[in-house]
């Protein structure tokens, strides 16, 4: 719901731009170089899947999209009961453990020693909330958008019952034929504490083809991760983003980029008829 409101400004601008017509043009900017930073992408989940921490580095804007892996790091995790593990580098920059998996109620402490730096993070794995239903509707003429009537596509609705009296944070990840589409769908329960919620994963051009597998993963996330993705969405730009861009609020100490998320996970699938 709040996501929709964030997008409302885009909508107005989009509408206005459409009304008065706008054009785009490539532009050559001379952007500064920056020192390479370590980017952490890590998760530990309650579904018995491997714990994976991926370490890469930033490159300059005008370079190719080839992001160097951070190799030979020492990556360890310990929980609040003292269970610990040192992850093994299974491919360059990817550190995993198939035996050390997450469980609800535990808090995980991550330590990374790489390239002379020490990065740390803490994340709590919260109690699971059940992913009740996934509904996908074809919207042939949702109407109204810029250009009117070309907002066709699919509407994806997810439902769950928010537990009363606790702050809950949710993240949904959309995969089409196994590919993460990169959209951020996050919700809190500020306006829906204790209710059965049906949220629409709002996306303006969701084009699916017959036979495609749409997989929606529901995650119950830590507040820090909610903050990370919330700031990520508001800050990292994208067309017509109106905030001053900045790096999102990472929960990694020692680096500005990336996150370490302990979360529950539940998946539902839909095959486009």
């Amino acid at each position: 719901m709040m996501i929709f409101m964030e997008k409302s400004k885009c909508l107005i601008v989009a509408f206005l731009l459409f009304t008065i017509s706008s054009c785009t043009k490539d532009i050559d900017l001379n952007l500064n170089d920056s020192d390479p930073q370590i980017v952490v992408e890590g998760s530990i989940t309650n579904d018995g899947e491997s714990t994976v921490i991926k370490l890469t580095k930033t490159v300059n804007f005008d370079e190719s999209n080839v992001f160097p892996a951070v190799e030979n790091a020492i990556v360890s995790i310990i929980d609040d009961l003292g269970n610990s593990v040192i992850l093994t580098e299974t491919s360059p920059g990817t550190y995993t453990s198939s035996l050390y998996t997450g469980s609800s109620g535990r808090t995980y402490y991550l330590t990374i020693e790489a390239e002379g730096k020490v990065l740390t993070s803490v994340c709590h794995l919260t109690t699971a909330v059940s992913f009740e239903t996934l509904t996908v509707n074809e919207v042939s003429s949702s109407g109204g958008g810029p250009g009117g009537g070309n907002m066709t596509g699919y509407e994806v609705l997810v439902a769950y019952s928010d537990p009363v009296g606790v702050n809950n944070f949710y993240r949904f990840v959309e995969y089409v034929n196994g590919e993460n589409k990169g959209d951020i769908f996050i919700y809190d329960d500020r306006l829906s504490d204790g209710l059965t919620v049906e949220n629409s994963l709002i996306k303006f051009n969701r084009n699916l083809n017959s036979g495609d597998t749409l997989r929606i993963e529901m995650q119950c996330i830590d507040k820090a991760i909610y903050t990370y993705f919330n700031s990520f969405e508001n800050l990292t730009g994208g067309p017509q983003s109106s905030s001053t861009p900045a790096n999102p609020y990472s929960n990694i100490n020692g680096s500005e980029l990336g996150y370490f998320s302990a979360h529950t996970t539940e998946v539902k699938e839909f095959i486009v008829p």
Binding site: D33, S34, E41, F61, G182, T236, T244, A246, N247
Partner: peptide, 27 residues
């Protein structure tokens, strides 16, 4: 204006890295 001074990959997408607030100029 704030423009990126680098980029990185996250969840399979290319994201931008910012180093300085309003360190650039619009044309």
């Amino acid at each position: 204006v704030t423009f990126p001074s680098g980029k990185y990959e996250l969840n399979g997408n290319v994201e931008f890295y910012y180093t300085e607030r309003n360190g650039y100029r619009m044309p």
